[in-house]
Design a protein around this nucleic acid. Structure first.
Lengths: 357, 357
DNA sequence: TGTGATTGGAAAATCGATGTACTGACCGCG
DNA sequence: CGCGGTCAGTACATCGATTTTCCAATCACA
């Protein structure tokens, strides 16, 4: 049916065939269909004929030929750690909205935190002539690509890069003062994996805010999610609740002298809650738990999760929008950093600090 | 830096430049670099020179030019309802593995269950010359695309389509006999949304297995997830636990005369558990809950979820593999349906049926 | 009756890689 | 000496759309 055997029938109508059919030159047809300014001398009647014929014969310009000529692909590359539950999904919701509106598609590449893939994928995508890059949650020291880049939740100091960042200071402040007002003074902190750029931003903000609030940070209560050696491929997913379960379990073996824990994200918070319960502690009775992100299941966890909501979709939208603008106008200057505000969602997992006996 | 202004410097080395640099013709260089059989008369020494120079000058064939010539894009289109937590993510894990190994990339298009998008996206992707389609969870009546298609968790009767399907009969049998052996006789069923192809397969299997097991299906206990009017864009996600919360809540207002519920998926099971708890019932004390899929958080829900594990990654891998084979050899015949086996994961959310007073 | 602008359109040169169909040169052999 | 056969490569025609340059009429105006 769609074999494309003989030259006269390449499975589809091309410009030459359309032009022949109309008794016009390819030039004219192309000019009309692209509404090119240099076609202003072409009378309306001819235009109509062309457009009508194109429609009737279902003419579709060949994507490769067009892209070859114009050297742009109408697609961008998205570089992300993984297709993680929670983060990727939400950000991409916003990204897709913006890209689709501009008739752009995107290639996704998951580097799984492997340095060699973080090297390789950008190159491969450049070969596919993407018009720009979107970096999710991924820091790249020196990304030498010939196209614009927007980094979401990461920081690239390179030129031609716009960073979309959460205002971590404000986010942490909201979370900690919530706990503070509930009477919590001994708070455990779960730091994110080293690979994730936000881990460091967050931790710095925590230290700073703690100073400002005159809250003591006990190093013993600072635990860290360690995903070293984990891999999506191996069946074990780096973003399973287990990432929070293990460190919390380890902490509980050391000490129970804390009344709250501020987790790196909701997934790990769910794991942490599980660990607390398994250790015979009640949430929020004995320990209050604060998550981060506000993933969809946060509201349906037991207990439902108090968490800092990142405007992930909005960050995606904004990032995609800036990227498209950068693509459209390569010389204009763009802001280096764009900060987004978070929101504290208070649910069941936090409560008044238990007066310790 | 990478401006690409003057003809002699289009930002990158192309075949002509490379050939000139070598004092050879483009033909020769191309033949050597592609290891073409018609280059067998070219001496090893010349080959070495070519390869070395290509490497040194960092020559990369232009993707569009090459694709235009060979009319294949080395990319496939993935059509999915959404980037849902749980399903999409897991399947794509397997898909990506297979595609990457074959140097393929993919475009993702989310149709959000909108019929017009299910129409439009395949066309748009065909225009982008994808070499094949992967349909996730999406039924398309008459997909008239000129390339091979593989449908995962859906059924397309069209020619040129291979379906990757879960063996629902076996899956349901495992789940129901587990409940049956625990003494459950009055079991509620949560049917999936109409839009999802699996909903119907599953329900038919349930009816059949129930007959085989001599288990009565009370129509009053068959509830349905209704996502009509929901949309990712509106901020409300069709795959939030809420989809399970609401129908369960509604059921509980009608009757409590059941000791177990078999949910359509884990997300809705988590919502259902929440509804049961909110109604003062304990899980699994009063009601046992069985989910479906085994998403990552299933093990960390409270209580952890007994569920039917779909081999989602494996289904993705298998689907991608078949698609690539179909692309490579368009004339060979391929199986129409491939069935995959599930596994019952028993956790805390199921227990012995309570002897009803 | 030129002169110059406008109208309506076409020829041909890209974009860059691929690969078929050739062309010389040289060698061996009868 | 002449014929076929390797060797080592090259010229050139694709793939299909875009776009610059050009051309021939026609019309307005002086």
């Amino acid at each position: 049916m769609t074999k494309g055997k003989t030259p006269p029938a390449p499975g589809h109508v091309n410009l030459r065939m359309l032009a022949e059919h109309l008794g016009l030159s390819q030039t004219t047809v192309s000019l009309v269909l692209n509404n090119s300014p240099s076609a202003k001398s072409i009378p309306q009647e001819t235009r109509n004929r062309v457009v009508e014929a194109a429609q009737r014969l279902d003419y579709r310009p060949n994507y490769f030929a067009r892209s070859l000529r114009q050297s742009r692909s109408m697609s961008v590359g998205v570089l992300a750690p993984d297709l993680s539950e929670g983060y990727f999904t939400r950000v991409m919701g916003g990204v897709v909205e913006e890209l689709t509106a501009a008739r752009y598609f995107y290639f996704t590449a998951c580097h799984d935190w492997k340095p060699e893939l973080i090297e390789k994928y950008p190159r491969m995508l450049v070969e596919r002539a993407v018009d720009g890059f979107l970096l999710l949650n991924t820091s790249v020291d020196e990304l030498t690509v010939p196209v614009p880049v927007v980094a979401i939740s990461a920081h690239c100091s390179a030129e031609k890069v716009t960073n979309i960042l959460l205002d971590h200071h404000q986010a942490v402040q909201r979370a900690l003062s919530h706990l503070y007002h509930l009477g919590h003074r001994r708070i455990a902190f779960m730091r994110g994996p080293r690979a994730i750029p936000d881990s460091e931003f967050r931790w710095e903000s925590i230290q700073q805010v703690a100073r400002e609030m005159d809250l003591k940070l006990d190093p013993e209560l600072a635990i860290r999610i360690d995903t070293a050696g984990w891999s999506t491929k191996g069946g074990q997913h780096p973003m399973a609740p287990e990432i929070g379960y293990k460190p919390m379990q380890a902490l509980l073996e050391q000490t129970r002298a804390f009344t709250a824990v501020f987790c790196f994200n909701d997934i790990s918070a769910i794991g942490a809650i599980r660990a607390l319960k398994d250790a015979g502690l009640s949430v929020p009775g004995d320990v209050s738990v604060v998550g981060f992100d506000d993933i969809l299941s946060a509201a349906y966890a037991t207990p439902s999760l108090t968490t800092v909501r990142q405007p992930l979709a909005e960050m995606g939208r904004r990032g995609a929008k800036v990227l498209l603008e950068r693509i459209a106008d390569k010389k204009k200057t763009f802001p280096t950093d764009i900060f987004m505000e978070s929101e504290l969602i208070i649910r069941e997992s936090t409560g008044p600090a238990k007066h310790r006996s």
